[in-house]
Structures are given as C-alpha cells and as structure tokens.
C-alpha cells in the first residue's frame, strides 16, 4: 500500500512563513485541503510535487525522500493545476498523446489509454476540437485525463472546480469519486460543498498551520450544537454580525435567514442545525466576526 509522508514541513518566502510545521501521513483515499486564499494550500501541493523545496522538512514516498526518487516518483504522480494552461492550438487527442509521451508511456499502450480516458471524461466526441475552443469545464476534464494517463498512485488536484458551473462541478465530483479507489487523492479547494460525500479526510489549513486532520464526521462533531439558523429582520443583520460568527445569509420572504455559529442558543427563535462542511469552512475562514 502506497504511503506519502510529510515530516515537519516549513516554508518561508523571505520573511513570510507560508507553512509552519506540517506533518501528515497519507494512505489511499481522498484528502481534502480546505483553506482560505493564501493559507498555503498551493505551496504545500507544490512541495509534495517536488516543484519547490521546503525550507525545512522532507516529503517521503513509500519511505524514500522524493528528491532521491526523481523519475520514479514522477511516474507515480498525476497533477491537475489550479489554472489549467495547455497548448491552446493543439487538438485534445493530440495533446493527450503528446503528454502521454512526455510521461514515458509506451506507444502501443498510449493510444488505448488516451481513448479510454477520453471516454471516461466524456470528451471522446470532442477529441478533435482545439483546446482553445473548449469551455472551462471541458478543459478541466482534459486536465483530469492528462493526469490519469500514467495511472498515478498519487493524484493532486489544485482547486480543480474553480470557475466551473454547478452542473460541471457535480460531474467533476462524480469523476473524482470513481477515481478514488486505491489511490491517494489530494484535493485543495475553498468550495466546501464540493466535498460533501466525496472526501475521506478533511485537512484544514489556516495561515500555514494544520488546524485539523480527521474524517469529515469527526471534524463536523466539533461544530455539533453550535450551528443555528434564525430568521431576522434586515435591519437586525448588522447587530447579528457584530455579535456572532455568521455563515450563509439568504433572503426568505421579507426577512433574512442567517446561519450562525455559537456555543449556546443565540436568540429565542434560533433553530439548531446539523453542521455541514460549508459551515466548517465558514466557521474557520469567515473574517472579522466574534465567536
């Protein structure tokens, strides 16, 4: 069974500390990294990919430091970057064939693999389209296909659903769920709702520190009996925001329905709710409110 191990990772950019003593062990499963912009998610992924070196600490793949593994580590990884670039003038099929060769896949197997993954990501009918003519969601699926060509044991997805419409997000989620068997999937996002029912472990990164790493149910337990929903008048919103940590706000008739986080019943009309991963995200990363 494959294992990825991070040992005391620190990363500084000049005087700014981006990652602060991150130690984790990953076994096959989906690990979701939740964090606000600038929390260090992308830097951590780049360190795991051996694209940048940590200031201190090391990453081990099956007990070996990744910088010593070189090519054999790169054989084991698949990566979907945050902004999928690609060569815009290439056709989808040609692009995947090209990437497959760069990944060192033998010719006789490559054609088969490209066709297989084009079907899996539902792009087979569009395989002769130029990449520049594809929608954002289709480009993300090209990204997944290229990452999967070498059958990676470690798949890293850096905010893959950013910029996708809801339908494409759902389709993307199903695709990841299908891929998660016997692989380590690291998935960074700040769209918590994407992770519902998908992730095996939630990792919360805040200002470069690992706040939590646990199964979603256990992480959510920490918010149990702290999530409340209350209907208020629009003019009361300012007061509520000053007093409580506020999550989602939505219009409900002439009133406003507010989701807020507090250890005891905040208002007489407040109704306790089951916490969701979105609550968890808002609890940790909403700005400027008191608890």
């Amino acid at each position: 069974m494959n294992e990825l191990c991070l040992k005391s990772i620190y990363k500084n950019y000049k005087t700014k500390q981006v990652l602060d003593n991150i130690s984790m062990i990953f076994k096959p499963g989906v690990y979701s990294f939740l964090g606000a912009n600038g929390s260090g998610k992308t830097t951590l992924m780049r360190i795991i990919l051996n694209l940048i070196k940590p200031t201190k600490g090391a990453v081990y793949w099956n007990g070996q430091p990744i910088e010593l593994l070189g090519e054999s580590y790169r054989d084991a990884i698949g990566y979907v970057p945050q902004h999928v670039p690609f060569y815009p003038n290439m056709k989808v099929y040609d692009f995947l064939m090209y990437i497959g060769t760069l990944k060192g896949i033998a010719n006789h197997a490559l054609k088969e693999k490209v066709e297989y993954w084009l079907k899996q990501v539902n792009l087979y009918d569009d395989r002769y389209q130029k990449i520049k003519n594809l929608s954002g969601g289709m480009k993300q699926r090209v990204g997944i296909a290229q990452a999967m060509l070498n059958d990676p044991q470690l798949l890293i997805l850096d905010e893959p659903t950013a910029g996708l419409d809801p339908k494409e997000r759902i389709r993307f989620r199903s695709l990841i769920a299908n891929l998660s068997v016997n692989r380590i999937i690291l998935y960074t996002t700040h769209i918590a709702s994407d992770l519902e029912g998908l992730t095996d472990y939630v990792c919360i990164l805040n200002n470069g520190c690992l706040e939590q790493l646990d199964e979603p149910e256990n992480v959510l337990k920490k918010l149990a009996k702290q999530v409340w929903e209350v209907d208020i008048l629009p003019e009361e919103l300012i007061y509520i925001e000053e007093q409580y940590k506020v999550g989602a706000i939505e219009k409900h008739g002439g009133r406003i329905r507010v989701r807020l986080y507090h250890h005891k019943k905040p208002l007489p009309q407040a109704v306790m709710k089951e916490p969701t991963l979105e609550d968890l995200y808002l609890y940790y990363f909403s700005e400027g409110q008191s608890t």
């Binding site: 051996n50 694209l51 090519e71 790169r74 670039p85 690609f86 760069l102």
Partner: peptide
Amino acid sequence: FKTKTFGMNELEWTFKYGTGQL
C-alpha cells in the same frame, strides 16, 4: 520558449522528462 509562454512549466515539471529536458 513555449513552455513559459503558455504557462506549462508547473505541469511539465511533473512529467517523466521535465521542462529542462524539453
């Protein structure tokens, strides 16, 4: 220079033969 022009550095570094060899 097309690796840089199209912002493919990050991805190509993860392939078996990376940007330098390319």
